[in-house]
Design a protein around this nucleic acid. Sequence first.
DNA 1: CTGTCATTAGTCAGACAG
DNA 2: ATTACTGTCTGACTAATG
Length: 382
Amino acid sequence: MNRARRIAHLDMDAFFASVELLSYPQLRGQPVVVGGRNASQSILGPDGVVRFTRLKDYAGRGVVTTSTYEARALGVFSGMGLMKSAMLAPDAILLPANFEAYRHYSRLFKSAVAAITPNIEDRGIDEIYIDLTDLEEETKALAQRIKQAVSDATGLSCSIGVTPNKLLSKICSDLDKPNGLTVLDIQELATRIWPLPAKKINGIGPKANEKLAKLDIHTIGELAAAPAALLISHFGRATGTWLRQAAHGIDTRPVVTESEPKSISRETTFERDLHVRHDRAALSEIFTNLCMRLADDLQRKGYATRTIGIKLKYADFQVITRDMTLPIEISDGTHIRQAAQECLKRVPLTQRIRLLGVRAGALTPITTDAGAMKGLQPDLPF
DNA sequence: CTGTCATTAGTCAGACAG
DNA sequence: ATTACTGTCTGACTAATG
């Protein structure tokens, strides 16, 4: 017997900033920003009082990773350059990102939910989808229990949307942030979803939104009313039909609890733009380093690769990539470096370079010796 | 034999997201 | 003037194969 799906989307509230507030409760209620590669640590003053760096003291190329709701009220949002945000909120506190702490709290909240149901899809560090269909409990009570479990495990709040599918749940978890809970039935599509801006659909970004605006489509309702042929002619067959389905609240994607990575990569933005000849030694060292770190990631995660690619960002922000598929799988730094070097030869080096990256694709899991032995050796009775 | 079509793999750019 | 890092997906194009 098939029953209606109940899918939840759970999103932690201002996750990185909220984790920092656990360490620095005295900052609660203030505009706080997490970000910046070289943002200085807080300093313990001689009087024993902790001093924090302010946004106006920052100089560099970093961006805002997360901000508290107080900082957002001042116009400071994720992805904004720190220099620009310093103009909007010069006295906001700036904290460096502490990814180890975030991963720790990420594991905590996910295991708290996993204790209630294992039907969880990982969507990065601070959000998950949960398939609640097979649980008997009433929807609202169940969602409240999940929020309480997350709060008990971490001291952090989250927002949850529960609807018949992932698309709508993702929209709904955002409707009542922070510490929100939104349960939506498909009956309510026209009244509660159609008035929202088209951009609220996960997958419609700035570019697609602009294109839609030029077609005089601004809300999800207007998108739902647009002729399929119009959408297909402007966005292609696959994207056009997807847009239409999404606007009608149709999404049959399952909650995927296990998946293999498709690629693993490392990239870095330099402190200053580097010149191909003048800074040759520095570039070469960074390049080798990226290859070695990538090899380390590959081996730690147990994959070999058959496709190596590089990425360059020039001083003018133009991005270029090159990749090559190898005749055999590799997984060590020296071979990665060799292949990446070949890719680099096919790239024009006329401008200064801002960023360099190395990527491994076409991944296959490595059968470890232990695994091979276990697979091949029958268990002996002694 | 030449041209066309379908299909697949590979390469690259770009959009999007957390 | 400023604009991170990691990862997934799609569209456009080319080449190879049948």
